[in-house]
Amino acid sequence: MARFSELRLGPLETLPVSVVAQPGVTLMSLVADALGGRSQGVHPSWRRVLSAAVPGGSGAVLRPLFAREYSMVPDCLTPTAPLWETDLTVQLERLADVSPQVLLAELERDFEGTVPRQWQSVVDRPKTFIHAYAAILASVWEAFGPMWARAAALLARETERVGVAAVSNALPLVLTGLAPKVRFCEETLYVPDPHPETFERGARRMVLVPIVSGHGASVFSFDRSDAVWFGYPVPGLDTLWGSREVAPGKDRLKLVVGSLRAGILRELVHPGTMGSLASALNCTPATVTYHCGQLESAGLLTRERRGQHVVARRTAAGVALVQLLSE
């Protein structure tokens, strides 16, 4: 049975939100999937490339971080701090220079004095482990760097999409579609986690981090003092596995709510039935019904039954959103 950590965000109207294209989060997702046995949905061809790119014995080096008994990466070993530093070269150099004493102290603190058996080899030779670990991450990024560069347009488009949603009260639509197994309900984000906890955002900023790895990507940190952040698959990831470049989107309404939901809102300049919308948008009535339900939950349309038909109409918020993002 799936278990979830909960992040209680509070009222979205006052939620400070940012998007940061943090390559270190993508790197950790890639390492977890290709080398740590924790599926993130990385494309099989890239999983093979990354596995072949690292030094021999990398699996044994990484085993403590991804052991089934307890999966934990100490903060000093994550190339994501500070979160706002997006030059991964700087992050990896800093990681290679981590003091063994700092790592040992963090392990002692994180495990409350009883370091698990799988970490004993690290405790015995921390300096050797740090150098080997840093070399693995550098090798993975050297192999994957060109793909990250190719994703620049997708990352820019996602930054624009979230930014527009934040100023148009459409954040619920963004949060409900972050990742396949992530849920958002009643101001709370539910994230799959083998060791679930409940977190209060408080006054901290919410940072969304699009990940360029796989469709199952999910990396997060809800216990930092400065911000809570969640990494999720960047929309349009499939386009990267081909050779064509990705052009930034121009339709801001589609960027925020997706192509089909944008079509529904625009078709509802006059009230319409599920059947008429399905015909206009070339899809099934069941598909339209599902997306209308999501738009209704976000307060952008209402539905009422009239005889054998269900009629949808835009709310004032729906009208305002279409006007704002169609200018």
Rank of each mutant, 00 (worst) to 15 (best):
L107Y: 01
L107F: 05
E108C: 00
E108H: 02
E108R: 01
E108I: 00
R109I: 00
D110M: 04
D110I: 02
D110V: 02
F111T: 00
F111E: 01
F111H: 01
F111N: 00
E112H: 06
E112T: 04
E112G: 02
E112P: 05
G113A: 10
T114A: 12
T114G: 10
V115S: 09
V115A: 10
V115W: 00
V115L: 12
P116Q: 10
R117I: 15
R117V: 14
R117E: 14
R117Q: 13
Q118E: 08
W119C: 10
W119V: 11
W119H: 12
Q120H: 11
V122E: 02
V122Y: 08
V122I: 15
V122N: 09
V123E: 10
V123T: 15
V123L: 14
V123I: 14
V123K: 10
V123C: 08
D124Y: 10
D124E: 12
D124R: 15
R125Q: 12
R125L: 15
R125C: 15
R125I: 10
R125A: 14
P126A: 11
P126M: 13
P126E: 08
P126H: 07
K127S: 13
K127P: 08
K127A: 13
K127I: 09
T128D: 13
T128K: 04
T128E: 13
T128P: 03
F129K: 09
I130V: 11
I130H: 13
I130S: 06
I130R: 02
H131I: 09
H131S: 14
H131E: 08
A132D: 10
A132V: 07
A132H: 07
Y133E: 03
Y133T: 03
Y133Q: 05
A134G: 04
A134C: 06
A135M: 07
A135Y: 08
A135W: 06
A135I: 08
A135K: 07
A135T: 12
A135E: 15
I136D: 00
I136R: 00
L137S: 09
L137W: 00
L137E: 05
L137M: 11
L137G: 03
L137A: 04
L137P: 01
S139F: 03
S139T: 08
V140C: 09
V140S: 11
V140K: 08
W141S: 08
W141T: 10
W141A: 08
E142Q: 12
E142V: 06
E142R: 08
E142M: 06
E142D: 07
E142A: 14
E142F: 07
A143T: 01
A143Y: 00
A143P: 07
F144M: 03
F144T: 04
F144Q: 02
F144A: 03
G145V: 06
G145W: 01
G145T: 03
G145P: 01
P146C: 07
P146Q: 04
P146H: 09
P146S: 06
P146I: 02
M147K: 03
M147P: 08
M147A: 07
M147F: 05
M147T: 10
W148I: 06
A149Q: 13
A149R: 12
A149I: 14
A149P: 12
A149G: 11
R150H: 12
A151G: 05
A151E: 00
A152C: 12
A152F: 05
A152T: 11
A152G: 14
